[in-house]
Design a protein around this nucleic acid. Structure first.
Lengths: 164, 164
DNA sequence: AGAGAAAATGTTATATTGTTGCAATTCTTT
DNA sequence: AAAGAATTGCAACAATATAACATTTTCTCT
């Protein structure tokens, strides 16, 4: 899986993007009375810095590379916190995590997952998801989260600019 | 996770349901020139017999309980075949498999996953998924599969008839 | 400030899920 | 029957995730 940015992420200032995400997360936590501890912040930063979804063990490695001694339970607990509070998403089909760019509306979401390069683009929830939640409600199913995952091939890979 | 049927499955003749699924699968394979071997059939049967999504190791246990000596790679390979050919679905968020009741249209689907009892109901694909695939195409993303997973509480659990 | 409670983190061990690689078998085709 | 392809058996192992308990930090209340 290449480390290069994908079509969805290419051409932007990623450092700036990461800084923005972290400061937005800090604001969100302050307002909500949540504790964005140094560890949690580092985990969130590692996730945001990556151009593709990061597994828990990859996060471990990233923090260890920065000089922190971090073991899996620590990372998983930080990820629990971040996910519960809508700061990261777990992409179940990849066992990996991405930063959430729709803070607060984190229970619903739409994802485009490229099976070639592993990149994931998050689209905002739309009325399709709302409507599905409504239909489910009509069947007496109380939907807490509705997530749509499309697996396929991103524009960059289709264009052959990142692929083989 | 209780073994009892859920609201989506309660009140039906499950043996008949399993037999129907297996014979439909056999038909499908015959028509498509696929080999539904005894092993694959047993795995498919184990999945269909269960009232909740079954993990690979649970399938192992089920076959061993029937007297077959079956190890994980064997089960995973059978599941690969069944999933590739649209006979089962993998529910990524549960690391588990369910029988597919929309054979042939297996790339798109909608699922209601009850986090209390673990039951999963599959709803037929609808035009909203098709539309999403189309929209993704407009963004130059070639969607091979579009899956919508709602996590929440099923009617039975909400009614307290299966839950605590 | 200080005591006690709650939350977060560190640490060891282990559970669960999934894969690799190769040998043996079975099926298909000629 | 023989070659080739697909399937299955098997042993080892890799990757992902959690349990249980000790320790530290932070918060709250007096």
């Amino acid at each position: 899986m290449p480390e290069t940015p994908t079509a969805f992420q290419r051409g932007h200032d990623h450092d700036r993007c990461v800084r923005h995400a972290l400061s937005a997360a800090a604001d969100h936590c302050r307002e909500a009375g949540l504790r964005l501890t140094p560890l949690r912040r580092k985990v969130l930063q590692a996730v945001w810095r990556s151009h593709h979804p990061l597994g828990a063990y990859e996060i471990c490695d990233a923090l260890v590379a920065e000089g922190d001694q971090v073991l899996p339970p620590t990372v998983y607990r930080a990820l629990d916190f971040l996910e519960r509070n809508g700061l990261v998403h777990r992409i179940a089909s990849l066992n990996a995590f991405i930063g959430c760019n729709q803070m607060g509306r984190h229970s619903n979401g739409r994802y485009l997952i490229c099976s070639d390069c592993g990149s994931v683009a998050e689209l905002p929830p739309d009325e399709l998801l709302e409507r599905f939640a409504f239909e489910a409600g009509a069947m007496a199913f109380e939907a807490r989260s509705v997530r749509l995952e499309a697996v396929g091939r991103c524009a960059a890979c289709a264009a052959g600019t990142t692929g083989p």
